[in-house]
Design a protein around this nucleic acid. Structure first.
Lengths: 283, 283
DNA sequence: ACTTGCAGATGAGCTAAACTCATCTAAAGT
DNA sequence: ACTTTAGATGAGTTTAGCTCATCTGCAAGT
């Protein structure tokens, strides 16, 4: 190889900082090493890169041109490296508020315990969703999604706080929190199917819709009524006895959680996360 | 330092060529070295960069992203390095056809003899002129040029082939080749001043203009007449006895050869060339 | 099915590149 | 004039990076 990349790195740093001493600090080397590198470089290129006026140095014209190119080149490489490095030691997941709040965030610590060295970042919101290196967990119509991308087919049931859970009769004018998505492309929660399945078509229900399942669940936990929601979201709360189902039978829906291009996520962290989330939701 | 730049270089090459073997050839290393570098890199980044299917390798998604950035980064650096390296070992000069053909090119070999390790490239033409790392030697009006940029104030005289050189009388209807620049911004060659200086205002001259001094000089050398041209261009031919002056007195002109921003050329080659060309034209 | 050849992985050992230390020089501040 | 600071220089030391030898697994030829 003609010129040493380390020498170039030293030069780039010295050129940018205008001092061998500072470059040495930046690269955790001695000023001597920088000096050697640069004179080596100047020798190989038979060009002088710095003017030396005693202890003061200044780039020559050629030096300045080279510095510009090396700085840009190394910056490009360093940025990519940073991204990749984060991809190796962290998984960045974006998902719906409800799944994040009810399932993923409460279990986040368990993931990190089970996978030391991989940190899990969970975020919600549109803006985060489609940037590169982010693993999006979306909620959608199973019929419109690549089957191999699906991580959980959703079922629904009615849940309530322990005291509320088993109403003597479904005709007492019970408040039932339901969900009405803002996004009209999403299939409706299968409330009529559930009423049929449980032979409660005639029940006297006071339905109160929210635009996110999360809110209805919180209302139910607080004892303000029952909630018709997905079993996935309720699971953890049921296990913790903060919520219980009403001896009713759950019904399947056409909703599912999925990860677009699931199989294209091949980093260690992403693979572990996908295994873990599968166990969490389906296990 | 976190990751080794040589490892990145190895990775970049392997990614681009799709083979450790070919990368090894490109970098003059053994395939083993490439393999070590890449597994080192994968270890440090805790990411796999290549899929291995037996003896076949393919980039992972992460690998492809990193490869794109490293390729671009290193390409930028390598290009700059190439340019600088040429700047150190070669001077690239552009100038007028006349100066190139009559003065610089004939003496090119002498420069390279006197400066081993520096090669001199001489080119003419508009397109070459203002690209970076090119040292342009231009012909122009001394009054409009930064004095420190001037390398030669031009004088003019009349020359002819040895047989032709001393006409018995200036009234024999002599053919005189002159120059009429295409570029009207250039001062005219000082023919009237020369005629006055030599008291030949009344001479019977058959003036034939060309748009470059070169052509008139060639005509004169071929014995077709005399030429009114700059002493710089004639000098070498006079020394070689291919041309001689007519016992007339030369006159100064406002024309000069100059190098824009002459003092900003600080490469070894450029400095040597400027010293040399000064000696060549003025010495 | 067996052989041969090829591409890459792995581990040990060696070499040269890269780093540091000690010493020196020149300029700038005190 | 004295001290301090930034860098140059040369010799000595460390370690990153290379090669060699060996091993594995696939694919193509016989």
């Amino acid at each position: 190889m003609q010129v040493s990349l380390q020498a170039l790195k030293a030069f780039e740093s010295a050129a940018r900082l205008g001092s061998f001493k500072l470059a040495a600090e930046e690269l955790s080397l001695t000023p001597t090493a920088i000096s050697h590198h640069i004179s080596n470089l100047e020798g190989r290129l038979s060009v002088s890169l710095f003017h030396r006026h005693g202890r003061r140095i200044a780039l020559t014209g050629t030096g300045a041109r080279l510095a510009k190119a090396t700085s840009e080149g190394f910056r490009k490489i360093d940025n990519a490296l940073d991204e990749v490095m984060r991809a190796g030691t962290a998984v960045r997941v974006s998902t719906t508020s409800s799944l994040a709040a009810m399932a993923l965030i409460p279990a986040q610590h368990e993931f990190e315990q089970a996978n030391p060295g991989i940190s899990l970042e969970i975020s919600t919101g549109e803006s985060v969703d489609s940037q590169s290196y982010i693993l999006p967990v979306r909620y959608g119509d199973a019929a419109r999604v690549e089957p191999s991308d699906i991580i959980r087919h959703e079922s629904f049931n009615v849940f309530g706080a322990p005291g509320m859970a088993a109403p003597g009769s479904w005709n007492e004018g019970i408040t039932l929190f339901t969900t009405q998505w803002k996004n009209t492309a999403l299939p409706e929660p299968p409330l009529t199917a559930w009423l049929e399945e449980n032979r409660l078509q005639g029940a006297k229900l006071n339905c109160v819709p929210f635009d996110q399942e999360l809110f209805g669940i919180q209302q139910a936990m607080a004892g303000r009524g029952l909630v018709f929601c997905s079993t996935t979201l309720a699971k953890r709360l049921v296990d913790a006895k903060l919520l219980q189902s009403c001896d009713t039978r759950e019904v399947a829906s056409s909703l599912c959680y999925y990860v677009p291009n699931k199989n294209s996520f091949e980093t260690r962290g992403a693979v572990r996360f996908l295994e873990w989330v599968d166990a969490l939701l389906n296990g």
